[in-house]
Amino acid sequence: MTSPLIKRCLAVSIISLMGLGPVVLFVGVAQASYKATPYQTSRKNAGTPNSTMVKKNSDGVIIAYGNSSITYRAPSAALVTLGDALFQQNCASCHGTQANGVPANGTAGAFPDLVGLGPATINFWVDSGRMPAANPRSIEAIRRVPRLTHHQALAVSAWVNSLSPSYPDIPYPHLKNANVADGAALFALNCASCHTIEGDGDALAMSTFSPSLRKIPSIEVAEAIRTGPANMPRFTGNLSDAQVNDIVKYVTTEIQHPNNPGGFGLGGLGPVAEGFVGLAFGVGILALAGFWVGERDD
């Protein structure tokens, strides 16, 4: 015994299911159509020590370069042995024993080739806890508590760099010399389009995410700007060391410690959180108050 209403409901759901089918298919296609393009950018021509202050060791190898804004330091050569051991233990299962992206039983191209990427890149990935990856097959490695200490991360980058020395070295920004106002303007032009103007990060295309900047130490900020990890574009050639230093200063002061003079910062979600608070707390509480005010029926 079916009433017309049930029949109508059935018809509607069948029609909507028929509409849903192609839609789901389309989603699948849209998701599947993502594959690595042949235009993968290489990171092998990073900024070289072109600045005036270059420091070499007794063998004539550059161990530090930079200027009053950022000093780039190569990890100490003494760490190479330790780094080798750590790499074989933690990284070689994917990146191969020679760090060339070819695991023992695999083929080339399955995992990134690390040779010649420069110490800053390696240090960023290991020190931010993204490597060793929680799930090596995921599109994106997620920031988490680092498995290796700062010292060990330096050692790994020292060993990888020893295979084919390259740049950039690990940047140490001199925040005292930075101009936070210039940093704010540069941040708005270069960084806010992904990380949001409040530095909270957000979901980007496909399953990629821009991370929150709220707890990133200054060295990692500078490393990320200079090396462009994963989907982040690299800012080399368009930002001077002084400008990078300004941005790092703005991120580590105003973004990470905003002095919200107007009360709680509402998680930096912007108008979404504001609307939620306005409706749930504002209208909601007032409607409850209205419930008390309006009822007079005892």
Binding site: A205, M206, T208
Partner: peptide
């Protein structure tokens, strides 16, 4: 809007 969001591995420009 300014299409300032570039994802270099995906080779996508995304409008924020």
């Amino acid at each position: 809007c300014p299409v300032g969001l570039y994802e270099q591995e995906l080779q996508l420009l995304v409008c924020p």
